[in-house]
């Protein structure tokens, strides 16, 4: 499969980088073609601008030259793998901004004359989220709910028309992680991506 892997961590020598590399190596070894979109390395600007907002619903103009390459990379993908740390209960701003700017009308959804949005990421057959959390899972889930998990398993899936198979792998409680727990998670990611 052609897989778009989107990464969102600023530090090159981080555990996140090890997780992303493990996932990528396993996917390549399984014969997939990977397009790696490292949002920080490519200095992606997450801020949706005034001009973009004004042209948002104009299908002729909303894919301007600055954003079109990102749209094309998403559109040619048959699967999407997101690798990110959870910050402030959610996706890092740079990853949210990728959605804000790239998930345009005509790209991720189409708006009918009735004003109803219909999913357009129907070319995605599979989605994986791979996330690292600072806090333990019970603290994430209790009261607040695991918003980053829902973002992938529920909302992104919805944009594929519900068709994509979705999986989610998370290492919670990174603040108290051990070398063993980190290694276990890398192994889990490797196994999951080998059979993706």
């Amino acid at each position: 499969m052609r897989i778009l892997m989107v990464r969102a961590h600023p530090v090159e020598a981080s555990y996140h980088a090890a997780v992303a590399k493990t996932a990528m190596d396993a996917l390549r070894a399984a014969g997939h073609e990977i397009d790696e979109l490292d949002l920080y390395a490519e200095a992606f600007d997450p801020v949706l601008s005034r001009d973009e907002r004004l042209a948002y619903h104009d299908l002729e103009r909303n894919q301007h030259p600055g954003i079109k390459p990102y749209v094309e990379r998403l559109q040619r993908a048959e699967a999407l793998v997101l690798v990110f740390p959870v910050w402030s209960f959610g996706l890092p701003a740079i990853l949210k901004g990728w959605m804000d700017r790239v998930f345009l009308p005509g790209v991720s959804f189409t708006l009918g004359a009735d004003g109803v949005a219909r999913p357009a990421l129907t070319h995605l057959r599979k989605i994986a989220g791979i996330a690292t959390y600072g806090r333990p899972w019970w603290l994430v889930t209790f009261g607040v709910g695991d918003f980053p998990r829902y973002s992938v398993t529920r909302y992104l899936k919805r944009l594929t028309g519900g068709r994509a198979k979705v999986e989610y792998r998370a290492h919670y409680d990174m603040n108290r992680s051990t070398p063993e727990s980190r290694q276990r998670f890398l192994d889990k990611v490797r196994r999951a991506m080998a059979r993706f």
Partner: peptide, 10 residues
């Protein structure tokens, strides 16, 4: 989408 703009999340 399902949340605040990247500007505010950041």
């Amino acid at each position: 989408w399902f949340g605040m703009p990247a500007m505010l999340k950041g």
